[in-house]
Simulated assay, not measured.
Amino acid sequence: MFTVYILHSDKYDKIYIGYTSNLQQRLKAHNKLATKGWTIKYRPWKIIHTESYKTKADAMKREQMLKGGQGRKWIRETLLKG
């Protein structure tokens, strides 16, 4: 099982979209363990949305859709209300 997740940084008003097979470990990496990468600059992150998929391919497809303009617009308008 794979999870597509959306993180939000309240402090910086940033969104991160990804997928994983272990959501709790991935969130821990984003918030504490990682020492390099884009997400370390905007900590702390909170999960604002998740979706489950049976295959990695389906999760990747949804992740790419959410990373596009319409997906980000949906996130801002629906999940963040602004």
Rank of each mutant, 00 (worst) to 15 (best):
P44L: 10
K41V: 05
H49Q: 07
Q70R: 14
K73I: 12
D58L: 11
R43G: 01
M65W: 15
K36S: 10
I15N: 07
D13C: 00
K46P: 00
G68T: 08
M65Q: 15
D10E: 15
Y19D: 01
A59F: 12
R62W: 03
I15S: 08
E51H: 12
H30K: 02
L23N: 07
P44V: 06
K73P: 13
K56R: 13
W45M: 02
E51S: 14
Q64D: 07
I48G: 08
K14Y: 14
M60S: 14
R62P: 06
R62H: 12
K54G: 04
I48H: 11
K11N: 10
S52I: 00
G37A: 01
L66K: 03
K11E: 13
Y12C: 01
G68N: 15
K61A: 08
L27E: 13
R62C: 07
Y53T: 02
N22T: 03
H49C: 01
D58N: 13
Y12V: 01
I17C: 11
R62M: 11
A29T: 14
N31V: 08
K54N: 08
G68K: 14
G18K: 05
K28M: 13
A34Y: 02
Y42D: 00
Q70P: 00
A29L: 12
E63I: 08
G71D: 07
T55I: 04
N22S: 12
Y42V: 03
G68I: 08
R72M: 14
R26K: 14
Q24I: 01
D10V: 15
A34M: 05
Y53H: 15
R62F: 10
M60T: 13
K56T: 04
T39M: 04
T39G: 04
E51G: 05
G37V: 04
Q70C: 01
S21H: 08
K14M: 15
A57I: 12
I15E: 01
L23T: 05
I48N: 10
K73D: 13
L66I: 05
L66D: 04
E63F: 11
L33S: 14
K28S: 13
M65F: 15
L27Y: 07
A59E: 09
W45S: 06
W45P: 01
Q64A: 12
S21I: 03
K14G: 09
H30W: 10
K56C: 10
W45C: 03
K73V: 11
K36E: 05
T50G: 06
T55Y: 06
I15M: 07
L27M: 15
Q64I: 10
L23Y: 09
K28N: 15
Q64E: 06
K14S: 11
M60K: 14
R26T: 09
R43M: 01
Q25K: 11
K54S: 10
K46D: 00
K41C: 07
I40R: 02
G18M: 02
T39L: 07
Q64H: 12
W38Y: 05
W38E: 05
A59G: 12
P44I: 08
K41T: 09
